[in-house]
Design a protein around this nucleic acid. Structure first.
Lengths: 187, 187
DNA sequence: AGCTTTGAGCTAACGCTATTAGCCCCAGGA
DNA sequence: TCCTGGGGCTAATAGCGTTAGCTCAAAGCT
């Protein structure tokens, strides 16, 4: 039995891919083992368990989405930055629904959990968007939560096929972005 | 062994309560059986399986949230109606996080699935809120999706303890509602 | 080159989950 | 009173995550 040459990083990456393909709920240790060409128990040499695997995928997803949004808003500000950030974020969630699903609903294990660092970076990208609007400092946290709620809600509902009826989803999304822009400007 | 006197309705109701208490992920057939005072396999005389159970809980949750929102907006319109609907919706999700979690990400099994009827009723309540704003007919679907995304996103993020840092969550929510009101009015 | 040591991968096994098969016996209608 | 339907049971299966303990390939040292 030749060595498979795995390490935590490659296992987590394969897990993220698998989650995107089959959905987070169907992400199984057996399936992941098969994908990386190894028997199930061998995975435990690289990750502590399914919980740990999911946490690491979540950190990866936060990092990646932060990079995607951060890149999209370079050289833009105001409404341009908002639209670019929103598009980049939604594109990321739709392209990686399994990865993104891991990021909701997990408590960081401790103060030095890599998750909190990744989460802070993801929020920083959106905070940068808000700098293009003249918000009172006291409103910045509220605006950040509002922005995050709207984008998170839209992306997860679409990823879950929550929009059943007819109107064009892309149009609805630009409508949402326009509403946010109006709301942020006229506060 | 005396009869326990169960029926599908009482089993689903108990399942919804249990899901709220322990979280949807920890909703187990064994746990539900213990709660209703019966052995696990007996549940299958009332629901077809865990999938069926979750679908029925989802239909219940959609129905209940539609009633909550519909009641809240009676006699109100415009911004008042929006605020009342938003508050009622968020209160419902926070009071019944397990129930609500069942409603995201399930495809209706067929055209006469009770789920679609319940979903339509839930949407109708929000549609009624939008009637208080002067929206072009073509924008109504977009506005509905926007409203739903924002409220769904905020409520689920809060239910998942997604708002870690300091600012007051209730204040953030009224800020979100104000932004939606401004955006809907000034379209 | 040979020797040592580390750890990646394996098999075997356990416990918990959902689910099915098949039996029993209580309750309501004839 | 009988008898039939169906709610509840026990027993058993299959699939999951996880642990224990073994083996041998690869990397490092002499």
């Amino acid at each position: 039995m030749p060595r498979a040459g795995l390490d935590p990083t490659s296992v987590v990456a394969a897990g993220a891919e698998l989650a995107d393909e089959v959905g987070l709920a169907a992400l199984t240790m057996g399936g992941l083992a098969e994908r990386v060409g190894v028997r199930t128990p061998s995975l435990y040499k690289h990750v502590a368990g399914q919980d740990d695997l999911v946490r690491r995928i979540a950190a990866l997803a936060l990092e990646e989405s932060a990079v995607a949004v951060g890149t999209a808003i370079q050289g833009r500000s105001g409404r341009d930055a908002l639209a670019a950030a929103a598009q980049a974020f939604r594109a990321y969630v739709l392209a990686h629904p399994g990865r993104y699903a891991t990021t909701v609903g997990l408590e960081p294990a401790g103060p030095d959990d890599p998750l909190v660092a990744a989460g802070v970076r993801a929020l920083a990208a959106f905070r940068a968007v808000l700098r293009g609007y003249d918000l009172p400092a006291a409103d910045e946290d509220h605006a950040l939560r509002t922005l995050r709620s709207a984008l998170h809600g839209f992306a997860t509902l679409q990823a879950a096929h929550g929009f059943q009826w007819s109107a064009d989803v892309d149009e609805s999304f630009t409508w949402l972005v326009d509403l946010l822009d109006r709301g942020l400007r006229g506060s």
